[in-house]
Design a protein around this nucleic acid. Sequence first.
RNA 1: AGCGGGGUGGGGAAGCCAGGUAUCCCGCGGGGCUCAUAGUCCCCCGUGGGGGAUGAGGGACCCCGAGGUCGGUGGUUCAAAUCCACCCCCCGCUACCA
Length: 565
Amino acid sequence: MEGKREKWMVFSAWPYVNSVPHLGNLVGSILSADIAARYLRMRGAEVVFASGSDMHGTPIEVEAIKRGIEPKELAERNHEYVKKLFEKWNISFDNYSKTESPVHIKFVQDFYRKVYDNGYIFDDVVQMLYCPNDKIFLPDRFVVGTCPYCGYEKAHGDQCENCGRLLEPTLLINPRCAICGATPIVKTTRHWFFDLPAFTEKLEKYIEGNKNLPANARNMSLQMVREGLKPRSVTRDNKWGIPAPFPGAEGKTIYVWMEAVLGYVSAVKEYFEKRGTPEKWREFWFDENTKTVYFIGKDNIPFHVIIFPALLMASEEGYVLPWTVASTEYLLFKGLKFSKSKRHGIWIDEALEVFPVDYWRFALTALRPEVRDTNFTWEEFRRVINNELNDAIGNYVHRVLTLAYRRFGQVPEPVEESREAAELSSTISKLVDEAGDAMARFRFKEALAKIVKLAGEGNAYLNRTKPWELDDGAAATVLYGALHLVKALAITLSPIIPGSAQKMWEFLGYSDSVERHLWEEAKEPPPPGQALKEPKPLFRKISEEDIDKAIERIEEIRRAKEASS
RNA sequence: AGCGGGGUGGGGAAGCCAGGUAUCCCGCGGGGCUCAUAGUCCCCCGUGGGGGAUGAGGGACCCCGAGGUCGGUGGUUCAAAUCCACCCCCCGCUACCA
């Protein structure tokens, strides 16, 4: 660690709280970010892990209108619900904020005033569709009509879901407002734009020079920059949002995308304010050595690699640009995309009603769509939990602890040289390094595979050495090595299944928190003489009936929800 | 259409960037072992758990084995799953939905 601690900011995309995230949303962004943050802390880095709820925008406004309540009330209610869920998922946010946070609102307004003063904002008049009945301007998505190409009657203004063609709302035959069905009219309005093209050269240099970006993100973004950037509108005519601070822009709000990304900064600022060191955020954001990683869906790579860096540049204040972005492919549910409207998939609140959080964290990591779309099925879930979590890891930990606890009651002192034990020790070091290396590259699935392999090595070691047949001295030596491996499992599993790792840690006789230890300590055996605690099985097998019950239970929850809303 | 990702034994994944041994998990066949969370029996609170007993052997664990022209065709090379070209499938993105 060469004297000075590394500084890291770990971010995940801000969930839009119009709905509860599903497992597909969680796996690539928030859960991945959490594992990264936990790992980096265990590497001794100084980490700030932040995210928050994205609360503004048309969908929430519309939903609130439908229910006859204020958008703020709906957004706050959803925010609280989602925030509690992340706590249940054991997400170790240093700060989980929201775009309605006063710190965020003030920051956004100050920020855009600065960008305006620097000359990167201009205004222009545009024509947009407007619903005279709901009295709001309609985003493309909120206009439906008949597709001019295929005749599909429920095509949206941006794209026809039936034939897949990209559309303009004005191309639709018989256009209607998606909210009330009235015929929209074309209306003139003034909007403020961010001069993105002004940053073409700087962006190209930044993207080309940033070798940490994944190849796909670099290529895609470079391509887009070279094809030519267009100005981005910053304002909207929505009521629900952050008031635009530009002269003459009274009544306009900042477009959600363009303000929510600034949450990455404001949430760190807010975090240090809460801790009573309100200036410390600058040490992170204005230090070019701070590393930042953004866990996002692959669909918004351009936003994080082009628009967000350009905004930071436009402030001319020296913010550290993204060090890397990390995205995954999609998690499919039974072969199809998760779909809110079709209720196809599993949502993060339902999941915890049917199985413990660590089962989910483990299975989602094991099935993480690292290089290609991955299919989630209940059969796979059951297989992963039974074979890997329970049989390989859980059973190993339990058999070692039981053997050692019954015979010695403490971590035994090794009394003789043992070739087997020495080999095990070097195997542990090797796999701990390999798992750490994969973690550092944010390849968590790969890291987990190494850890499962570690447990397999432990099981093989016990089968070879048969400590139950040995006298006390020889058994002590063998079990000492086996307990070392349990310690290594507790440490390396801590970022993935923190709760269960902590239990392993306590069975080993430790009374502090495993996550406060360093990754490297996995290579050191536990201290001889430390009293062990009586072990209890950590996991249970899942039967086919358990799965059937879980599916039924989820159905029940959905029926209850629908009935109440 | 353009761009990006992918097509590897029955299923699921790694390897490809830095060519030379095709690896892992499930499933399948055979074997070893009996320390531990299957099973069976009994008891307790209750409908999901808690405690106890049992086992020459079933689950777990470990070992061995069967199974693949690595999407197709052509090229480069002493050598290609890996590099190049073309083609065929699948998925995603294409910036005012968040």
